[in-house]
Write a protein that binds this DNA or RNA. Structure first.
Lengths: 268, 268
DNA sequence: ACCTGAACACCGTTCAAGT
DNA sequence: ACCTGAACACCGTTCAAGT
């Protein structure tokens, strides 16, 4: 009977960052601090500790294997005690994403560095975070990223745009061209690393295996000729070098595009 | 005792496309055809039917809710009978991804269309497929995409590159700049649609809700001023228009970048 | 205030059996 | 050749209960 009313109430915008009622946490202490309570020195859970443990577990075993029960045993409690600190598993994952975004090496907004260098730095640091924590890619897409660290990153991208000379009405699209590219690139790169790690082999070994398997299927075709030519011209003896090179060249293209577009618009 | 040997054997490259032993399917009949057998006309499972049902279910309910058991009830069999046709759930998902890539509207490689138009078409059709089937984005990252339809797409991107005049050693990076951008962009766009649909509201309603929630948190800050300015300049009265506009502008930047780079390299 | 046990309604996959 | 039932080792989350 209440189902219609329920449907209207359903928020759609649920996010940890929008639920003001933060649960009991220890406040802004630096690091571990001294255990106030006597006995449960080992336990003494709070949101901060749980989030840190979540990131560690996700890094170690990936998103697929992560579970509330698994995390709980890591923290030496039952799964249910976690629900006193976070409402759902998704909330916890959202906290984890924003936590790793704290690792971003954002450029000083006051510094007078050339925007090209700033763009490269921002792109590179975002790429590094996503590759270091491959599980974060999927979650960045899922949660619309409105945590405080993600907000600082957005702020930095907008600050960068202002320096490019790009007309205001194109800044939204230009931000997208750069950072959705980095997101896409780093997601695929991170998944590849994860896949290799899961099989206990190096990325180079996985690459060799994949190439051998694929070329067996397309040998003699036009695709085979073309892709072999591109890959040989690309150079680089390791997968890591190939990724680095492609990434750098892609940023060159983007920067050249921004230069050309902003020059054209200031000329008219 | 065999654990060391096992580790060495573990392939890392598992993929449906690499297991030659295809299971019993009906052959290349067109559409439904006439039921050869008498009674199990309704059942009569095969890989093709299972994959089609998988895509339908993923479109309807998303990756999170998809399960072998759920799919089985849809097909009026038990979950276990599916395992006669596919080895694992992941194999089935890999088949589903390649199936939707068959929806890509690839340009005729023989046609003499300007590469700029071809690039726009290829980017747009890839974007549309990923937005229409948002679950595919995550899986494209997971499975390295070596199915036949994905291969045709790769072939088309390489054919496009040859027409740009881009030097061969930069084609890999340039392909990445375009198609990893599209992948990133469409992934985020698709997730947004999915999120709105899951809450039973329109993307525009979700957008308004999100903006209201966020601005409450950052009002008065520099980020608020900057992002408001960019959003207003961006124009477009609906979320769909905003996405279209940003996408088009981003492609403009990329095309300008490719033009500038290939012109510079042919001049030296 | 914090944590637990038992329970509900699920998972993917294996394996021995059925027809 | 194709499909099933029962079982194993899991899930996220709720709820009443403990301290």
């Amino acid at each position: 009977m209440v189902s219609a009313a329920d449907r209207v109430k359903k928020p759609g915008m649920s996010s940890v960052w929008l639920d003001a009622k933060k649960p009991r946490s220890a406040g802004g202490g630096t690091g571990t601090g001294t255990g106030r309570k006597a006995d449960p020195a080992v336990a003494g859970l709070d949101r901060e500790k749980i989030t840190a443990a979540t990131v560690a577990l996700l890094d170690a075993e990936g998103l697929a294997k992560f579970s509330m029960r698994r995390l709980a045993t890591e923290l030496k409690v039952t799964a249910m005690s976690l629900y006193w600190y976070v409402a759902t598993k998704d909330d916890l994952l959202e906290l984890a994403v924003d936590r790793v975004m704290g690792e971003l090496d954002l450029p000083d907004p006051a510094a007078a560095t050339d925007w090209r260098d700033q763009l490269r730095q921002l792109a590179q640091t975002y790429r590094e975070v996503l590759v270091r924590h491959p599980w974060a890619s999927i979650l960045v897409g899922r949660f619309l990223g409105i945590g405080p660290r993600m907000m600082e990153f957005s702020s930095a991208t907008l600050g960068l745009m202002r320096k490019t000379g790009m007309p205001l009405d194109r800044q939204g699209g230009t931000v997208a061209s750069v950072f959705q590219f980095v997101y896409g690139f780093a997601t695929i790169e991170g998944e590849f690393h994860q896949r290799a790690a899961a099989s206990g082999i190096t990325p180079d070994e996985l690459y060799a295996e994949a190439m051998g398997a694929i070329s067996g299927a397309v040998e003699g075709t036009e695709l085979f000729r073309d892709s072999t030519a591109v890959m040989e011209a690309r150079g680089g003896s390791t997968v890591a070098e190939m990724y680095d090179r492609d990434f750098r060249i892609a940023l060159d293209v983007l920067i050249a595009g921004i230069e050309a577009t902003s020059a054209a618009s200031s000329a008219e």
